[in-house]
Design a protein around this nucleic acid. Structure first.
Lengths: 197, 197, 197, 197
DNA sequence: AATGAATGAGCGTTCATTCAT
DNA sequence: CATGAATGAACGCTCATTCAT
């Protein structure tokens, strides 16, 4: 749908860099223009507002996440592996672009902008839906225990995954997100696997 | 320790109200002063900076959370109930003062203020420690399964709890946090209880 | 004339201390009240404005300077010694209360307050008059050369003295004002003494 | 080196005007913006802070003073004339832009800003150095008496010159600075010339 | 005599945005 | 397509001063 021009993608990339280097509060039009080597006004040739740039970051992540979800969901992998893929992909992305995590986790900052907060919302919903599809199938074929309602399982899994990212961000990216995420999934796996009688 | 005067508590309360009604971005000194029916400067008789007010909100929650944790940890309740108490109390508090959740979950906004972010950090650590004490005892006397390392269990539980609060906030407080939180804990309980052979 | 109560003198003293420790910009009513161990409002029992306090500092110095001038001028000392006394006394005072020098040399800060700037003006005039009396007598009885008009001599002497104080202040009171001042006077003395044919 | 754009020079000029008309305390960003016919923020396109504007005033004077000093010092003029040039130039500049004198003599106001106070400091040092070079040569070839150490001579001359400027400022520019300055130098000249035996 | 609360005017500064060139 | 100048609204904060208690 909403395609971005080359220049727009450059701007989004620099915005991501800027947030990564400093913080999301440092993402001002002026700082961004400096980083791009142009003046403030120039940016408005390509984006109609600052919010549109943030939206761009969100949408780029969203696009990738969507592709990943679709590929994973339509695959024939066992449920557990699907779940693993669903998150490991995000962890990889966040490790490469930590600031994207800042943006994706910035619900509180976007509260004022309905478009942005809606987008974050949607992202979460997509994730829940993808997870749901994996869990339901897993429960059907006995890979995942049935005693816990699917809705709760989703919350447990996403909650755990998000919390790892939060801790990682608060630790200033001080540990290996991919590795710790994997460990977490292994543990979750143990909990979710039905007990052999 | 750091006691607050009556007026300071009034200001903190109004700040909480203001955040609840609008958003944390609306918490400006001017808005707060208006809400209090005074002029900007008057606030600075009682707090030396805006950050100090935010800190006040945090500390009020912290104080209550600490008391709750201590009471719960030193009790003789079964581990599962301890965990339940640990969180149900927060859910009650958030339900009463939803904006406190906004502040407590505002890590990203505080990134710039070391004192504030440190305080949020500390809050999380306290919570982890309290949970840890409950889990370890629970694992000792067989209430909680030992196959998952305690560290992972903590992440799963806190992550799940935080995610419920996040969803609740994003839904504009559209569901009963206490009830849903309870359900979540019941599910977690099932997962954590060791399987009878 | 304008007598100061004991409490007023206390306040003036603390104001002097405050300026000495920090700078004249740090002399705010709040800071001063803190130093006195009272609240802001209390100060207004004793002074009707902040300017009145500054005026107090000026007047205290003025009073002492006046006494010194009168004593010196009416004495029978040789002109050169009179000049020496005129300034060495100030140097001693400044060494004891460096911040008084800050205030006495704050013409630029007082520009807005006519009463204060007038007071500084008057101080300078008094000094010129005292010096004038010494010089004229000195020229009469051949102690001081007559080839330079008295007015110029005054400017040279006061200018030199003031410049030493300025350098002393800019050096953060890094040298012995009394000693350097004395040396300066010795040199001036050499210049002013008429040449023996 | 640090060049100023045309607009920056306009702003500096208006700042100088503003100080001249009112006082240095009236130099606020708002007042300056009004005088320029723009809004506050516009100024920050051209200067990053108010201090930078003050620095601009200082540097403009400094630049001119430096050129004057260099030209004078490297010339073959007799020492006395060198000294005359050194100061008459400043007197001319101050007469044209009286407020520059306000700024150059504002050590006390700049006490808080290390960059500014350092700049004023440096200005004084430059002046002393230039004077020193003239005096030393003058003493060598017998133009200036040797009985007074160079350091004291510097203090006497600069002190006298500064005092004239101070009196001129306090008199609200009520006399001809250039003429009085010249007279002063003539008198100093008489004092400094060695006596023919 | 002092407190504690508040006022009101002001200050330097930031920032998303607009627009003529 | 970009620049450079400007806007306007906001923001956190300071400070001399007032006044009821």
């Amino acid at each position: 749908m909403s395609e971005y021009s080359e220049r727009q993608i450059q701007i989004i990339s620099k915005a991501i860099e800027l947030i990564a280097e400093k913080s999301i509060q440092e993402l001002t039009i002026k700082n961004l223009a400096n980083k791009l080597g142009v003046t403030d006004g120039a940016i408005y040739r390509h984006f109609e507002s600052k919010a549109a740039i943030l939206l761009g970051i969100l949408r780029m992540f969203q696009k990738r996440a969507k592709e990943n979800m679709e590929k994973t969901c339509t695959s024939d992998l066992p449920a557990i592996e699907k779940i693993e893929y669903l998150f490991s992909n995000n962890f990889k992305y966040f490790t490469e672009f930590p600031s994207v995590a800042s943006v994706v986790f910035s619900e509180s900052i976007f509260q004022n902008d309905s478009l942005l907060s809606q987008e974050v919302h949607q992202l979460l919903n997509m994730q829940e839906k993808a997870l749901s599809c994996a869990i339901l199938k897993g429960q059907e074929n006995g890979e995942i225990c049935k005693q816990i309602p699917e809705k709760e399982l989703i919350r447990i899994i996403i909650g755990s995954m998000r919390y790892i990212v939060t801790k990682w961000r608060l630790s200033n990216y001080g540990f290996d997100l991919i590795a710790e995420g994997h460990l977490m999934l292994v543990s979750l796996n143990k909990l979710l696997t039905p007990v052999e009688p």
